[in-house]
Every structure is written in C-alpha cells, then in structure tokens.
Simulated assay, not measured.
Amino acid sequence: MATTEETTGKTGGGKPMSVEQHMLDKGAQMLQSLKPIKHMNQHVCTFALYSHDMTRQIETHHYVTRLNQDFLQCAVYDSDDSTARLIGVEYIISGGIFESLSPEEQKLWHSHAHEIKSGLWVNPRVPEMVVRPELENLAKTYGKFWCTWQTDRGDKLPMGPPALMMSPQELDLGIVKLDLVKKRDDKYNISTDSLKAARAELAVPEPERINPEADYWKQNGKGFAIEVESTEMKKIAAFP
C-alpha cells in the first residue's frame, strides 16, 4: 500500500492525513452506503489522446458503471493503484443514442471500434472469453471523455479548464506509441498483439460504417480546446 508521503508527493505538497482524519473516513465508510461507487463493476485499461494535442497520449483506467443497456459512465484514473488520481470522466452511449445527437454534439465524441478490435482496450485480469460479449457491444458505442487533471504534464493539482480526449485510431496521430503499450502489457503480463489477433473475427463496425462526425479530427484535421473567459453574471430579476 502506498504511504501518505507518496500520496502527498503526487498532489503538490498537501499535508499527510492525520490519525483523526483516518478515523473519520473509516467511520463514514462503515455508516454510509456509497451506493454509486459500489455499482462500478468493470475496470478497463486503455489509452487516450488530447484533442488539442494528439502527440500527448496517456494510459487511462476507467471504472465503469452501467446505468442501462445504452448508457455507461466512467470515473477515469491515471492508474489502478490505491493512490490513483481521478483525472476525468467518460460517458459512453450506444450507436442509437449517438445518431439522435445533433451534428455539433457528435463532433465531441469518439468511436470505440478500433480501440477494442486492436487489443488496446482491456479488462485487466479478466479472461478474454468472459468479456468477449461485452466487447462486441462496446465496439458499437461512442464516448465523450473530459480530462480534468493533466498529470502527464506534471500538474500537482487539477489546473485550468477540462480537455477533450480522443480514442486511439488506426492512422496518423491516432496510433498509440509502442512504449506506452509495452509498459501496460508488461504490467499486466498480456500481449496487445495477441489480443488483436484473437479479436480479428469480432463483430466490430468497419471504419466506413462509423458515423463520420465522430472522431472529427480524422475527417477535418481539427481538434477542440476549451478556453476560460470572464462573462457578465446573470442577475436575479428584482421582484416587481
């Protein structure tokens, strides 16, 4: 288990947790239901790329809750360690819901077909045969992932506005760096290449069958960046 010093080092020099705080947290954990967290039923390890700078690629760990057959929500961490930092959130929707969105909204979403078929998307320590039906369903989905803590650039705290993330793809800037994949594979004693071969017959949409508004950069060569600007606050209307 990581020490408080390790945790402190990750988060900009905050004070180590006191004994009293540990006791309060343990007491709350025993008394409260924590229902949303207990409904996280999958751990997915994959990779993501910043929409505004796709040369920046990160390993991500998604803890997934399925709200219904067409919608999933994920808390995204930078590792699966006890001191992992919460770096964002991803929403995953079925193809049917995606098609109901406006074209402007669709541009913010990415497809999962290549990510899954290429073996980059894995459920660590779960046998492939167990997750295969789920993979076939997820391969037809789309995701919108906002990164709120850019730990890859050394940020000790969540800084600035959120960044939109894209999924790995089969061409150009979407190809995940080999050293990132090897590091992940070595950690979990898996082979992405072997998974790719095993998933060759997976029922996955071909690139031409994926809505072109998703993965917007592939068609248009442009990403999206969020900027913060000041604005006039809405005033509460005076009572007549």
Rank of each mutant, 00 (worst) to 15 (best):
A2P: 06
E5C: 00
T8S: 08
T8M: 04
G9C: 03
K10I: 00
T11R: 10
T11A: 05
G13L: 04
K15C: 02
P16M: 00
M17K: 02
V19C: 01
V19T: 10
M23K: 08
K26T: 08
G27W: 03
G27S: 09
S33W: 07
L34Y: 15
P36D: 09
K38N: 12
M40P: 00
Q42C: 06
H43R: 06
C45L: 03
C45E: 15
T46D: 13
T46M: 04
M54N: 10
Q57K: 10
E59W: 00
T60P: 00
H61V: 06
H61K: 03
H62I: 04
Y63C: 03
V64F: 01
T65I: 04
T65D: 05
Q69L: 09
D70E: 15
L72N: 13
C74V: 09
S79I: 02
R85L: 14
G88W: 04
I92D: 05
I92L: 07
I97V: 14
I97M: 10
F98W: 05
E99I: 02
L101F: 15
E104F: 01
E105M: 12
W109Y: 15
H110P: 00
H114L: 06
I116L: 03
K117N: 12
G119S: 07
G119L: 08
V122D: 09
N123D: 11
V126Y: 02
P127G: 07
E128H: 03
V130D: 07
V131T: 11
P133C: 05
N137F: 06
L138M: 14
K140Y: 06
T141G: 04
G143I: 03
T148M: 08
Q150Y: 10
T151K: 03
R153L: 14
L157M: 05
L157P: 00
G160F: 10
P161A: 15
A163M: 13
A163S: 14
L173D: 12
I175L: 14
I175M: 11
I175E: 09
L180N: 11
L180W: 10
V181D: 08
V181R: 12
K182V: 13
K182N: 11
D186A: 12
Y188N: 05
S191V: 04
T192Q: 11
T192N: 02
K196A: 14
K196Y: 05
A197W: 06
A198Y: 04
R199L: 15
P207A: 08
N211W: 07
N211C: 09
A214Y: 04
W217E: 12
W217K: 01
Q219K: 14
K222R: 15
E229Y: 02
E229C: 01
T231C: 09
E232M: 07
M233I: 13
M233D: 14
M233Q: 15
A237Y: 07
F239W: 04
F239M: 09
P240T: 13
